[in-house]
Amino acid sequence: MRILFSDEKIFDLDGMYNSQNQRIWAASRDEADEKGGIKVKQKFPQKVMVWLGVCFKGVTPLVIFDPGTVDHAEYIQKVLPVALKYGNKTFGKHWTFQQDGAKPHIHHLTQTWCQDNFPSFIDKDHWSPNSPDLNPLDYCIWDEFAQCVNWKKVTSKVTLIDELKCAVKKIRQDVVLQSCSSWTARLNRVLKNGGGYLKKLIYVIL
């Protein structure tokens, strides 16, 4: 309950999608397709990368990267101070910052910044490299966020950014609380599963 989880996600004019962690849980290819497994996308869509943090008390301010990429220097400059300010205001002196194994996160300068500034953080050697089951953003919040976007208003990169800024304010607190509250149980299930995914059949939609 004192962990600030964080993640980045790419949104484009076709919606939210990231081949690294966008998955359909299904027992067959037909079932996967019925659940939205087929996505029609523009060949060169305009895209925006965003960063968001979440804890049981709510979500952080949204950080938007334009263009839709980020390196360690930009991550240190634009993201980590936001996470630190929110975490200290929300929890006080005792809390933990989580980030995954993306390259900007595991860069030695990023790790040093985290070590020097956060009360506690999960370093690059102590976070599972394949962990969508362990981050509330992956298993819940990104989907909630996307559903809060009025996609009918998204016609350009500018309107996409505007809608993302509005949508983050609509994320339901009960969903945030439930997703973070389930983390310990999910962690125990992953441990019992030998570190593997919680479900064996995963159809990755590329």
Rank of each mutant, 00 (worst) to 15 (best):
L4M: 14
F5M: 04
S6D: 11
S6I: 01
D7R: 00
D7T: 04
D7K: 00
D7I: 00
E8K: 00
E8W: 03
E8T: 01
E8S: 07
K9P: 11
K9S: 10
F11E: 08
D12Y: 02
D12E: 05
D12I: 01
L13E: 15
D14I: 00
D14Y: 00
G15T: 01
M16R: 08
Y17W: 10
Y17T: 00
Y17L: 09
N18Y: 07
S19F: 10
S19T: 07
Q20E: 12
N21E: 10
N21Q: 09
Q22M: 14
Q22T: 14
Q22I: 08
R23G: 08
R23S: 12
I24D: 13
I24S: 08
I24T: 15
W25A: 13
W25K: 11
W25D: 13
W25R: 14
A26I: 02
A27V: 03
A27Y: 04
S28Y: 02
S28E: 01
R29N: 06
E31L: 03
A32K: 07
D33G: 00
E34S: 01
E34T: 04
E34V: 00
K35Y: 04
G36K: 03
G36A: 11
G37N: 05
G37P: 11
I38F: 03
K39Y: 03
V40P: 09
Q42A: 07
Q42T: 06
K43A: 15
K43H: 12
F44V: 10
F44K: 05
